[in-house]
């Protein structure tokens, strides 16, 4: 128990970092209604760019900006595949993700991984300084949520949300749905790359495989956050916060099951099953209680 409690702050810090990635996933999965698989590659891209820039002597904040921009470019590629080439969104994401594997190897100087020593460089977060990391990650997440809350309340943000909600309506109101999808994908992947950049600092290295399964963790965080907080959190900013909390809860659960003796190699199997289960819940709910939904609509009509 004591060992579990001791590992808790680290799990939370890592959970927030993955929660920031979940915010990126939320933008595509929930706002744009697109499952974007680019993120598996983008997370590594963000980490790789940050490590290589920092190692070459660049200021850490500037390196973060470059990591963000690299992620944006990955999102742009997926967006162009999807809109200009007419490739289904999921396949577009897979294509970019595959391409990014080669690109990430090149960024990492044709190596599978590169280390980033916290003793040599002035990093924002590190597992050596967990309290500081917790504070920095929390501030980062809150600032990001505030920024996105503002953005999705603007005319531009509204047009992106309309595109995700109803494309026919969006076009009928003069919104170019293709450019809105691209903007959403660019923004989402930029955020995921930022999360990767934080993660590489935290763990002290960037690895070409660090993003494998990231989309599943992101979805897990989004869905866990929704299932637990949906009754409480209606506001857009709070929904984003729920995704971050979902990431934290996911990492605490992972810490627990590992303590309970789950083989670390089985972790991805475990994650996939958890996500499948949580994705299934709303579907089963709708199947079991169709009558309940109908009365709800009726009462809305009478109101």
């Amino acid at each position: 128990m004591a060992a579990f409690l001791a590992s808790l702050p680290g799990a939370i810090a890592q959970g927030i970092i993955w929660g920031i990635m979940a915010i990126g996933v939320f933008i595509t999965f929930r706002v744009l209604d697109v499952a974007d698989l680019t993120v598996d590659g983008t997370l590594s891209t963000g980490g790789a760019v940050l490590v290589m820039c920092t190692v070459s002597g660049m200021n850490i904040y500037l390196a973060m900006v470059l990591a963000f921009l690299a992620g944006c470019l990955a999102g742009l590629a997926t967006g162009v595949f999807h809109t200009a080439f007419g490739i289904p969104a999921i396949l577009s994401g897979i294509l970019t993700q595959l391409a990014l594997y080669s690109i990430n190897l090149r960024i990492l100087g044709n190596k599978a991984n590169q280390t980033l020593s916290v003793t040599k460089y002035n990093l924002m977060v590190s597992l050596r300084y967990i309290p500081k990391s917790l504070i920095v990650c929390s501030i980062f997440a809150v600032a990001l949520i505030a920024l996105l809350y503002w953005f999705f309340g603007t005319e531009m943000g509204h047009s992106i949300r309309a595109t995700g909600s109803n494309q026919a309506m969006a076009r009928a109101n003069g919104i170019n749905t293709n450019t809105r999808k691209i903007i959403g994908l660019v923004l989402s992947n930029g955020i995921v790359a930022l999360s990767g950049a934080l993660l590489s600092q935290y763990q002290g290295f960037a690895d070409v495989n660090m993003g494998r399964g990231a989309i599943v963790i992101g979805l897990a965080a989004v869905i866990i956050g929704e299932v637990i907080f949906s009754k409480l959190f209606k506001n857009f900013a709070l929904k984003l916060l729920a995704a971050v909390f979902g990431g934290v809860i996911y990492y605490i659960v992972i810490t627990i099951v590992l303590r309970l003796g789950l083989n670390a190699n089985d972790l991805k199997l475990f994650s996939a099953l958890v996500v499948a289960l949580f994705l299934g819940i709303p579907y089963w709910k709708a199947k079991v209680a169709p009558k309940k939904v109908k009365t709800k609509e009726r009462s809305a009509e009478n109101a």
């Binding site: 509204h158 047009s159 949300r161 109101n173 919104i175």
Partner: peptide, 18 residues
Amino acid sequence: ENLAIAARRGKRRTLLPG
């Protein structure tokens, strides 16, 4: 928000409040 989107039909969508 729906009405506001319609009120901006045919106009540039900026970073001003929606």
